[in-house]
Design a protein around this nucleic acid. Structure first.
Lengths: 161, 161
DNA sequence: TATTGTTATACTCTATAACTATA
DNA sequence: TATAGTTATAGAGTATAACAATA
């Protein structure tokens, strides 16, 4: 429709915006925070051609060689169907290989290839440096507290995962 | 490839998983936390057929009648091109209307229609009730602290937005 | 019967660039 | 020249369900 407004009643044309009750919504705050952190990631890791998902898979497979595909999917909270595509893409890129264990021949175990480990080498240093740089704009104490609370929210506090 | 593994070297077939350095990554924690919070949202708001994005637009337009489309897009950290599609969809559903102000005829102002306000009425109560229910599993103090730190991270602390 | 991974489909979200109309 | 919004296109991500192999 896009009608033309002769009057200009109640309109605020500036940049300011009243977020109202949304500033009290944990989901809303997490959504915006995640978008901001990914923006920062892409800005700081620019040139390495790496995505957050790929780097976490590389680091997790390095730490957990032979992990089953479904366990990895659950840990990253992504669907099995999507994990299949992700893993196949990384296998196509020569970064991971897949084996079927005799113990349960339905499942698939994942391992880094030499190329996968080399890729991790290339990427892990800059990533950990970026993480240590504290690009959040928070004080060190606030950032540490924020991470602690997020781990607690996720149930990663205890020695489980 | 999917080779068969005769041996079973180093493999852990259980559920446990070592997240290693990823538990120190703010982006990783925010990503998982956001996924978890959306899962909770869909579980708690099931039956209302509402999505997080739609509810925030409804509430923001209610608070900021006549806001310009681009300002809303920036506040929600989504691209203008995507905002166009979102707004057109909501206009097609009769929830919002768009006007072109004389002051700047390039821009578009957004308003809730009566149907949009009715939709908000239907949805806002359950949503605010859900928000007040504290479904995070954190203590009230921890949840409040978490929200405070996220607002600080987003720069929503100060009386700006 | 239940589970693991796969395939197929569709829909949402995102990224990019070219385009228009206005400023 | 720059900006606001639009359009078109392509690529990720996601949800769902049906399926085969295995448990």
């Amino acid at each position: 429709m896009t009608q033309n407004a002769g009057k200009d009643s109640g309109a605020q044309t500036g940049e300011a915006m009243d977020l109202g009750a949304m500033t009290g919504s944990l989901g809303f705050l997490l959504r915006l925070s995640q978008l901001k952190s990914f923006d920062t990631f892409f800005h700081e890791m620019k040139g390495l051609e790496i995505r957050p998902g790929e780097i976490s898979v590389l680091m997790l497979l390095d730490r957990n060689p032979g992990i089953r595909q479904g366990v990895l999917a659950r840990a990253l909270m992504i669907k099995r169907a999507h994990m299949t595509k992700m893993v196949h893409a990384m296998e196509g890129a020569g970064l991971v290989c897949r084996t079927v264990p005799d113990a349960d021949r339905r499942s698939v175990q994942l391992w880094l290839t030499d190329a996968g480990r080399a890729r991790l080498e290339t990427v892990q240093g800059p990533f950990l440096a970026f993480e240590n740089r504290n690009t959040s704009g928070l004080s060190d104490a606030d950032e540490a507290m924020l991470k602690t609370l997020l781990r607690r929210y996720l149930g990663l506090d205890r020695p489980n995962a």
